[in-house]
Design a protein around this nucleic acid. Structure first.
Length: 183
DNA sequence: AAGCCCATCCGAA
DNA sequence: TTCGGATGGGCTT
């Protein structure tokens, strides 16, 4: 998966209303955003997700700027994130799916089938779902906005409770924004 | 090269 | 509302 060059990741932790947030960055770019409840577990998951990578966990307690922005983005879904540099690490198919996901705005949802159609592979909805599950930059690549065709929530790597929370919040936030503008 | 795993979908009872 | 077959990418052997 990775080339010969060894990547060095700076790892930062923060707290949000979804629990623990772990941001891994390299050279000013976000490589991973994981959600969970336990630091050691998250670091373990990161290590298995990126073998052959050197991790430097920030113990200083001073959060990196990127971590602060990610947490802010979790709490305020309308925060613009287009200028946040992301580092995609995956197959070409996965990267295509993840790029298409970034077109889905906060407050909107899309089905796995529609997402598959958007990348020109309408019968690959199953593979698209797998690619969503393989997304390592949660929240910033909004795989939580993909739902099933029958209206069910669908799965989420970080727990369906977090997926639901994110969607409810984004919906509420959109309503708030509309009321604010129109009323 | 072949098998297994999946965060799905759709049609038929 | 349940059920089974189709389906395609990724990972392991």
């Amino acid at each position: 998966m990775l080339g010969k060059a060894v990547l060095s990741l700076q790892v930062n932790f923060g707290l949000s209303s979804l629990g623990l947030v772990m941001v891994a960055e390299s050279d000013g770019e976000v490589c991973a955003v994981f959600l969970g409840d336990n630091k050691e577990n998250l670091v373990d998951e990161l290590a298995t997700s990126f073998p052959n990578v050197i991790l430097h966990v920030n113990q200083s307690g001073a959060p990196s700027k990127l971590l602060t922005r990610v947490v802010n983005c979790i709490e305020c879904p309308d925060t613009p994130i287009n200028d946040l540099p992301l580092h995609f690490l995956g197959s070409s198919f996965q990267c295509e799916v993840w790029q298409a996901l970034r077109e889905v705005a906060a407050g909107e949802v899309i089905t796995y089938a529609q997402l598959a159609a958007n990348i020109g592979r309408p019968s690959a909805f199953r593979a698209v779902a797998n690619a969503c599950g393989a997304n390592k930059i949660s929240v910033l690549i909004p795989c939580h906005r993909v739902v099933r065709s029958n209206g069910e929530l669908g799965g989420y790597r970080w727990g369906t409770a977090r997926k639901k929370k994110l969607l409810v919040r984004e919906g509420e936030f959109k309503e708030f924004a509309l009321n604010h503008v129109c009323g």
